[in-house]
Computed example of a mutant assay.
Amino acid sequence: MKKFGLCIAGGIATIILLSTIGPMVGLLISLAVLYFIYKQFLKAESTGWKIALGIFGVIFLMASISNAPAIIGVVAAYILYLVYKNWNSSKHSVVKEESDPFVNFEKQWNEIKNY
């Protein structure tokens, strides 16, 4: 039942992630350009160049804000990572192995044979 729930959560997260790839790429590009505009703004000495960079910065800031649904895609990617990480958790298999009388019998039989 645990695997079924993980499968459902992983499927939903995959669909959401695939549907938000476009906004994620747009957000990444607009933030990268905004970062370089900011760096150039700090280096600029003329007032006219600073005004032009400020206008470009506002434009790319608006582009970044318009790609805000990409945050949902990032959350879906994280959920998909958690599903992948928990898919083969060995907590249940270790408990079953220790409580299984046949496994314990095999271990004890091998110990007796080695004496």
Rank of each mutant, 00 (worst) to 15 (best):
K3V: 07
F4K: 06
F4V: 03
C7S: 11
C7G: 13
I8C: 02
A9M: 00
A9F: 00
G11I: 01
I12Y: 04
T14G: 04
I15Q: 01
L17H: 02
L17C: 07
L18F: 02
S19V: 11
S19N: 04
S19W: 05
T20L: 14
G22F: 14
P23V: 14
M24G: 09
L28Y: 12
A32Q: 00
A32C: 03
Y35G: 09
Y35Q: 13
F36R: 09
Q40I: 00
Q40P: 02
L42T: 12
K43L: 01
S46C: 02
A52V: 02
L53I: 01
F56R: 06
V58H: 06
V58T: 11
I59V: 05
I59A: 05
A63N: 05
S64C: 07
S64I: 03
S66T: 11
S66Y: 15
N67A: 07
N67W: 09
A68C: 04
P69I: 08
A70P: 01
I72W: 11
V74W: 10
A76V: 01
Y78K: 07
Y78E: 09
V83F: 02
Y84N: 07
Y84M: 10
N86V: 05
W87L: 04
N88G: 07
N88P: 04
S89H: 10
S90R: 15
K91T: 09
H92I: 13
S93C: 10
V94K: 11
V95W: 08
V95E: 10
K96Y: 10
E97H: 05
E98Y: 12
E98P: 06
D100I: 11
D100Y: 14
N104Q: 13
F105N: 03
W109V: 06
W109C: 08
N110I: 13
E111K: 05
E111C: 09
I112S: 11
N114A: 15
N114Y: 14
Y115V: 15
